[in-house]
Structure formats: structure tokens, C-alpha cells
């Protein structure tokens, strides 16, 4: 974990209404390089809305999302202009959707899905792009001879790994993940978690991961944020929140897990 330069992300007083519903209510936290933060809570607790606000895909009513950009210092995602946000979204950030279909282009080959992000950041040499796409496909355990196949011919687990390769090929510093293991078989899930864990350590990635699966949070996250009706009811070390939850709602959530 790098200690220079301060937090990568500083979130302050973030709030968002939908009509009369307060979807995200006064959320604040810091995220450091190399740190994985899990956001947990039941459906409708505001987890995915919060993720969209952090990534600048949705504008908040109030609050700041201060991102420490490479070589540029701290910028507020909330007030930055759209072109700048797009540049960050394809260079320094990644966004892994629950459904790979939302994060992949299904009509172009697997290799092009990965290579496209490289072209978007200015790579032009076809041979190099193909080579790096191939390298990343291997790293996420997709056979090299599938490079020219369409993602539609892949299984759900392979598609999800391809989406991860597409996001990581430009070596982002911050990756948002919305239930990345959600729709997968348990056996595929385990392999994906192992892969993610290795990549987080190796690349010193900062990750904000939304999940309803507390076992995923335990295995992947350093810290955990428990949300209920848009509010953060508890934020702490993952094992502390799971082993000794303090807030009434965290206790309910933890006590509801089936023991496997």
C-alpha cells in the first residue's frame, strides 16, 4: 500500500433524493490506494446509487467526491466537466457491472473488447494492442484461441472475466464493482474471487465493491460499510463488522447468514 500522497478518494456529505425517497443520505469515507471497501446492505439500501454517484454517472443533490488524479492533484468528480470525467472513466477508473452484458460490447470479438480500451487511451499499434489483449485474456484465464470469438459465445463466468480484463488492461487505479459475482455459479464465483484478490494485491488497486454477499465481502474487502435506507449505519474493519457488529441493523444482517 502506498503511503504517499494521501487518500485516493475522499467522499464528503454525499446525498441523493429520488422524489421523496432519500436514496443516499450524508455518506462520507476515505479510500486509500490498494484498499478494498465493500458496501453491503439489503436491496434498496442505496448501495448501487452510491456507486453511481462515486463514479460520476449520477449527480448528487449535495456533497463532494474528491479524487486524487495521477499527476493532477485532487479533483471533485461532482463538479468536473463531462469530457474530463470520460477521460478518467477510461484511464484511471474501471467499472465492473453485475451483468457482463452491460460492460461488454457483444457484437465485437473478445480481443477487440479488451483492445478497445487501449485504443481509447491512444494506443495505435495493432500488434501491440493484440498482444496486450491476449496477455490480459490469459491472466483472467480465457484460452488464447478464443480471442476472435464473440463474447456472446462465452459462458457467464467467462464473460465476467472478460469484463474484468477489459477494465484492467489500462491499469486503472480505482475500480468500482457492482455485484461482480452476483449471477455466477458458486464454483465460478470462487475462482473469480481468487482472481480478483490476486489482481488487487498485484496492482495495488483501490476497489469499491457493492455486494449483498457477506462471504464475498469477508474474503475480498479490508473494510466494510453497512447501509440501511441510504445511511451508513456502520463502517469498520471487515472482520470487526462481521465478528462483532455494533449497529442493530448490522447485527441483524450478520445473524441472518446461513452457516455453510
Amino acid at each position: 500500500m502506498s503511503v504517499t500522497g494521501g487518500p485516493l478518494l475522499q467522499v464528503r456529505g454525499l446525498s441523493k433524493h429520488f422524489g421523496r425517497i432519500l436514496a443516499v443520505d450524508d455518506v462520507a469515507f476515505d479510500l486509500w490506494p490498494g484498499e478494498v471497501l465493500a458496501i453491503v446492505g439489503e436491496s434498496g439500501s442505496g448501495k448501487s446509487t452510491l456507486l453511481s454517484l462515486l463514479a460520476g454517472r449520477l449527480a448528487p443533490d449535495r456533497g463532494a467526491v474528491l479524487y486524487r488524479a495521477k499527476d493532477r492533484g485532487v479533483e471533485d468528480v461532482v463538479t468536473m466537466d463531462e469530457p474530463r470525467r470520460r477521460v478518467l472513466a477510461r484511464t484511471e477508473w474501471g467499472f465492473v457491472h453485475q451483468s457482463p452484458r452491460d460492460g461488454l460490447r457483444l457484437k465485437v470479438s473478445a480481443g477487440a473488447n479488451v483492445g478497445e480500451r487501449l485504443m481509447a487511451v491512444g494506443h495505435r499499434h495493432y500488434g501491440n494492442i493484440r498482444e496486450r489483449a491476449l496477455d490480459w485474456m490469459t491472466r483472467v484465464e480465457i484460452a488464447a484461441d478464443r480471442i476472435d470469438d464473440l463474447p456472446a459465445t462465452f459462458s457467464g463466468g467467462m464473460q465476467q472475466r472478460l469484463q474484468i480484463a477489459r477494465n484492467l488492461v489500462t491499469e486503472p487505479r480505482l475500480v468500482y464493482m457492482d455485484e461482480p459475482t452476483g449471477g455466477l455459479d458458486v464454483s465460478v464465483q470462487a475462482r473469480l474471487l481468487d482472481l480478483l484478490r490476486g489482481l488487487v494485491t498485484e496492482l495495488s488497486l483501490a476497489v469499491v465493491i457493492v455486494t449483498h454477499d457477506l462471504a464475498v465481502a469477508r474474503l475480498l474487502a479490508h473494510r466494510m460499510m453497512v447501509m440501511q435506507r441510504g445511511r451508513v449505519v456502520e463502517l469498520g474493519l471487515t472482520d470487526q463488522v462481521l465478528d462483532d457488529p455494533q449497529a442493530p441493523y448490522s447485527q441483524l444482517l450478520v445473524s441472518s447468514i446461513l452457516q455453510g
Partner: peptide, 9 residues
Amino acid sequence: LRLVYGNYK
């Protein structure tokens, strides 16, 4: 022991 390790608060 857990209080020392910090998984108990």
C-alpha cells in the same frame, strides 16, 4: 484474544 487482534471492538 480477538480484542487484541481487533476483530472485536
